[in-house]
Design a protein around this nucleic acid. Structure first.
Lengths: 196, 196, 196, 196
DNA sequence: CATGAATGAGGGTTCATTCAT
DNA sequence: AATGAATGAACCCTCATTCAT
């Protein structure tokens, strides 16, 4: 496959540039990163970036395409079946928490730059709805199975998601913060069930 | 008191500039806002900003001084006494949720620009610890009062805080998202307390 | 009029920049002139140009507005009355020839950059038509007056205009080149009028 | 003759590149045409241009060498013998007019880029003198032959040339614009030869 | 207090040219 | 002969900041 050497190297270069850009963007914010910073960190001339991307903006699209964690979140949600709730929430929590940690850079970037831009916010809200929908559906199946009491599953799903996200983003350890949240969600803290 | 007229007007101008700057910074991000944008929106010439502030950075400090919600969060926490947990959490939730909504602009700004800068992150983490400390202490007093079961109060406090923050920031309605989270925290969703 | 000093100076600056730009554009061609060249020749910083004009392109519009010879050509044409043809053509020729010489710079610029761009060419062709229309009308009035033989006045007007333009642009002296052309147009060079 | 295959193809490629470059240069102006534009339109990679030409400038020389209409203008002038003036001027006019039309691209290019550069202008003026010299000489031969009245032949030649050039460049139809100009030159438009 | 002309460093982008394949 | 990745100098433009009025 000697013929593909050139294009392989080009592919590698492209990915390298995307990765370097993500690192810097997430560290300092897009505006604070100069094209020359990216080029320097990648060890190439500034001009080369424009061989691979029309401009700074296009780098962003490439970053999203390559590093978005959303598909993997969907995969994690698709694994929810009829396991008991504690196992399911734990497994989901671990996977999503780990995902956010691993893809810290793009998550940071998204919160920094995207979440406030109306169009991107729109996309994010739709992703949230879809994900919570999955989780809600699962919780209701556990009600039907007699494991959980009837409850507003959308709200519980949101509470769970908030706990996982904040913990992962703030760098709080999974145990006890997420495990504890799951525990609380399942059993509450009140002495008398009658508080309900 | 003709002498105070001048300083009164000056004070008003200063505040106006700070408010305008906060609005723009929070909407577009600090780097994307030009001094001339602020001046234009305030209806003054660019040069005038430099009579009131040494530069862009000083504007930020002035914004924080004038708009930081942290003192008010502390006030809300100081109100926690020995009311029943549901009342207390509800009252606290309402206050903090409302505070974040009202001060949307500076909160947005802080998440955008500050939270990722190590020094500001440091400050934020310390504020979190202090706030959670207060709440933890209150929860333990309710355990001592026999209202709540023994539990890891720091984790519960964090779970509660996550729910409030995410709801307020994402624009989810207080009811049912925060009220529901409180309910869940207090009573859980499992049918059999033995799930614990 | 002390109050207008500032704006007067601004006006002077603006005109200076336009004039300098015209000089350079016409000498070297628009693309070959760097903004810094204009600034340097005007003795100001590059940035100042953007205080007065949004960009290079806007400079062009300003140049045309300030230096277009077309209004003056119209004035010259409007002077044509019922003087004898030789006088009229001579007077018109002198005025237009002088105008092109004086405004050499913008004429050169127009030929260089504009004449080939379809939209500008359109404008030029319309200006030509209007001008030739005037001249044609005059020539026909001289036919009616019995001074000239019936002829295709549009063609004669074009022949006259070509002679004047080419002479002025190529830098050929008015006398004998334009005077001679007028002479030829009026009397021809054939020995026998029957050649016709 | 397998050996000439290579060089034949090379020759064809070279000519193709020159032709493509001329087209683009004349349409947009030299500075506005990128090497990559030429390569793209020719369907080859940018680098290939540097196998055939040292650089952009060399491309220009090649264009002139291949497309200059000057030799053909000389040929047309060389055809002037002792035909009657109307025939001669008509024939010459037709040939030169057609030549300019056919080679529109390089003529446009020359007017755009070259005519204002002192060295090229020099060359053009010398070409003009030589051409007008020929024509002047012919006209004087017609005076000697008794067909034309004594006159300043250089001026008449210039008037004729101006009419032909302007018509061809402006896209005015040969008939009546050039035919009419010849008519006028030969017979004039004044009623009374005494106007002379 | 207020203006806005003026500065100049620095960023994004373009593009002729080189060179390894 | 042909490719296209890679270079780097230069250019246009932005914008925080200064300062004369």
């Amino acid at each position: 496959m000697a013929g593909s050497r050139r294009s392989e190297q080009a592919e590698r270069r492209r990915n390298q540039l995307v990765d370097v850009a993500l690192d810097l963007f997430s560290e300092r914010g897009i505006d604070a990163v100069r094209i020359s910073d990216i080029a320097e960190k990648a060890g190439v001339a500034q001009g080369l970036l424009y061989h691979y991307f029309p401009g700074k903006e296009a780098l962003l699209s490439a970053i999203i395409e390559r590093h978005s964690p959303l598909p993997l979140v969907r995969d994690a949600l698709a694994l929810l079946h009829d396991q008991p709730a504690r196992e399911a929430l734990n497994g989901l929590g671990i996977r999503v928490y780990a995902l956010i940690q691993e893809r810290r850079a793009i998550v940071r970037l998204a919160l920094r730059e995207g979440l406030w831009q109306p169009d991107i916010r729109e996309i994010a809200m739709r992703a949230r709805e879809s994900a919570l929908g999955f989780l809600t559906h699962y919780l209701q199946s556990r009600v039907a199975a007699g494991e959980l009491r009837p409850h507003n599953s959308m709200v519980v799903a949101q509470t769970f998601a908030s706990a996982v996200f904040v913990a992962a983003i703030a760098g709080l350890p999974f145990d006890p913060y997420v495990t504890g949240a799951i525990e609380v969600i399942l059993s509450g803290v009140a002495v008398d069930p009658a508080t309900k």
